[in-house]
Write a protein that binds this DNA or RNA. Structure first.
Length: 660
DNA sequence: AACCTTTTAAACATAG
DNA sequence: TCTATGTTTAAAAGGT
């Protein structure tokens, strides 16, 4: 019955939205009870759990503190710290919730280490309270150092697992280079993992150094502890994490292949736990291991929040929320048919801890319509959520409450009593009523979607690029695949959706059955439902946060303003690539902005990225082999993270021009 | 600025 | 009494 149960040992309680987590904050309500039952599955809370919880508190406070630090550092007149050419809130880079989650730290660190860390964090927080203003810089630096120490621990841990092809001492030293610029251990070793073939191997550097001495000097001068270095370090860590995940997937794949071929089936390997490539790998009713709780498939699970304005000012509390700060399901606002999206990205959502870009209502509806009888019990709806989305294998109290809330609130969900109890059905008429007759989005967006010729050519080119690519990384079926196909479909269904029929049209496909609008009208009782506009009609501002919150260098602004607003119609795919004008590097997140027919403004301020953004990202990734999809955006596009050989050095907040 | 939608939280009711 | 289910209210956040 209970699907979630023991999969959550410690969860962040709802009250964490205020940045405070407490053991006693469980609710008495239905949702709270669920959470409480989770916590009580194994009886008492273990010391490790307690520590974990305290650690969350500490981290949360530290994050908030560092957020303030970041804003403070970016304020005029605050220039005590050596700044990289572009000011970066390093705290965001280093303290992003997904960087080192409590779970990860618990894995990385032994309990004594955790305790020590906790004490350190608490001490720092105390210091923060006492000296909010005058000690900002000091505490800030100490936080950085601590986080780097954590990273060292992490590297060592990976090293122990054989996942980092780096000599442990060298790894430590290379990290320490960033931390303690006065140390020159490497001078005595004669070799350095960051030095080879006369070049500095620091990501994106490639500075020529004649000898080790010169290199050390260069290292200390150019890669000292500063915003850039820490951000780059963080990126490197996530590269390693991605590779871990990839390794796990490939291993599991191998396992399955060998099993299939009757070659000595072996026991499941311990490291394949976080991933699953089977569509129904998680039997219902079993607690699913959080796909990426410990080692998130999307270490930047809150990538959108990390790079969005919301996380920078509007959501100071949202970091603690385990499900992320996304409050709007953006893409369901205008053109993503849920059936198509889910069909196309089934695997992605099953395995990646990414919030699906749909409202609860649309998801519930889809679940119900997908069922054989087009009716589901509440528990079956729960199960559908957990089965289909890794994201909903956590924080069950929260989203289950939301599901119940939606079922009750929306008129389109009709409760029908039957012999065994009650099932929920969809009153499609009511559901469709919620849709406005016309698309109310911005004219430019409508234009983008309707005149999709340019993107259409990109579709083809993207597929061609995929086919031609020799890089299996992006194309491997076992990889958490960027949901490109559905994004491509967005274009074509856009028209349909404008006429409010897209989901029905798409329901003829694999996921959703066809249905008559009248078929499921069960006016059992009447609910007062607020008129809703859902998932098809409005522009979104996915990238608005990026461009609005991250000030562009002035020259970038100029260049961007100078960009001509030519149409994409009639261009060849290769020409279309050249329309990729800018790449915003936000720490490790790289969001490709394409030149849309209506110009960058549309893309960055008032609309979701058109399908082409994923498209071009994919092309870019395939061509250059430099990017890994790390974050499924709620619009269906994907944020890519650069690999180390990124030809565009990972200068945080740096904006660079791409001309293929 | 007012209003709307969605999400989240929570209180409360009720049936088994 | 406890739990699951269902209803309702409220607040917050983001959008129109």
């Amino acid at each position: 019955m209970m699907v979630e149960s023991a999969s959550e040992t410690i969860r962040t309680t709802p009250s964490n939205q205020n940045g405070v987590s407490s053991l006693s904050s469980q609710s008495d309500g239905g949702g709270g009870r669920e959470g409480g039952s989770n916590g009580d599955v194994n009886g008492e809370i273990s010391p490790v759990d307690l520590l974990h919880l305290q650690q969350q508190q500490a981290l949360q406070a530290a994050r908030q503190f560092l957020l303030q630090q970041a804003s403070g550092l970016n304020s005029p007149g605050s220039n005590e710290v050596k700044q990289s050419p572009v000011q970066v809130p390093v705290s965001m880079a280093m303290m992003s919730p997904q960087m080192i989650t409590p779970q990860q730290m618990q894995q990385i660190l032994s309990p004594p280490q955790l305790q020590a860390l906790l004490q350190q964090q608490q001490a720092l927080m105390l210091q923060q309270v006492k000296h909010t203003l005058c000690s900002k810089q000091l505490a800030f630096q100490q936080q950085l150092i601590q986080m780097q120490q954590l990273q060292q621990q992490h590297i060592l841990n990976l090293q122990r697992q054989g996942l980092v092809p780096m000599q442990p001492t060298a790894a430590m030293q290379s990290l320490q280079q960033g931390t303690c610029t006065h140390r020159n251990h490497e001078e005595h070793t004669g070799s350095h993992p960051l030095y080879g073939h006369g070049e500095c191997k620091w990501p994106g550097c490639e500075a020529l150094c004649e000898d080790m001495g010169q290199f050390i000097k260069h290292l200390n001068n150019e890669h000292a502890l500063d915003d850039r270095s820490t951000a780059q370090c963080r990126v490197q860590m996530q590269v390693v994490q991605q590779l871990e995940i990839q390794l796990a997937k490939e291993s599991e794949r191998l396992q399955a292949m060998m099993t299939h071929l009757h070659m000595r089936p072996s026991e499941p390997k311990p490291f394949n736990q976080p991933v699953s490539t089977s569509c129904d790998a998680y039997p219902e009713g079993l607690p699913h291991p959080p796909t990426s709780a410990a080692t998130p498939i999307t270490p930047l699970r809150q990538g959108p929040s990390v790079i969005s304005s919301s996380s920078l000012h509007a959501h100071s509390h949202s970091h603690t929320h385990p499900v992320g700060p996304i409050r709007r399901r953006n893409s369901d606002k205008y053109c993503t048919p849920i059936a198509s999206e889910l069909a196309q990205n089934c695997e992605f959502y099953k395995n990646a801890d990414v919030r699906p870009p749909f409202t609860y209502a649309s998801l519930i509806r889809h679940a119900i319509l997908e069922s054989p009888d087009r009716q589901l019990t509440l528990n079956e709806i729960y199960n559908w959520f957990t089965r289909k989305f890794a994201y909903f294998r956590r924080n069950t109290a929260t989203w289950k409450n939301a599901v119940r809330h939606n079922l009750s609130l929306h008129k389109c969900f009709v409760r029908v009593e039957n012999v065994k109890g009650a099932v929920w059905t969809v009153d499609e008429v009511e559901y469709q009523k919620r849709r406005p007759p016309k698309m109310t989005g911005s004219p430019t967006l409508v234009k983008n979607m309707i005149s999709g010729l340019g993107f259409g050519s990109l579709n083809a080119s993207y597929q061609a690029a995929l086919a031609e690519s020799s890089l299996s990384l992006l194309n491997s079926p076992s990889l958490v695949t960027p949901p490109s196909a559905a994004s491509l479909n967005m274009l074509h269904v856009g028209h349909d959706d404008v006429s409010s029929t897209v989901e029905q049209v798409n329901s003829n496909g694999s996921c959703s059955p066809t249905l008559s609008p009248q078929q499921y009208s069960h006016p059992v009782h009447v609910k007062e439902e607020p008129t809703e506009v859902e998932e098809d009609s409005r522009p979104v501002s996915l990238l608005a946060g990026v461009t609005h919150s991250l000030p562009l260098p002035s020259d970038e602004r100029d260049l961007e303003e100078d960009l001509p607003t030519e149409e994409l119609e009639g261009v060849t795919p290769l020409e279309a690539y050249t329309r990729v004008r800018t790449i915003y590097t936000c720490w490790e997140n790289i969001t490709l902005h394409i030149k849309t027919p209506s110009g960058m403004d549309t893309l960055s301020s008032s609309s979701a990225p058109p399908p082409g953004i994923t498209l071009l990202s994919g092309i870019f990734g395939c061509l250059a082999c430099h990017f890994i999809p790390v974050e499924k955006m709620h619009t269906g596009s994907c944020v890519y993270r650069s690999l180390g050989e990124d030809p565009f050095p990972l200068f945080p907040l740096c904006t660079r021009h791409l001309l293929f």
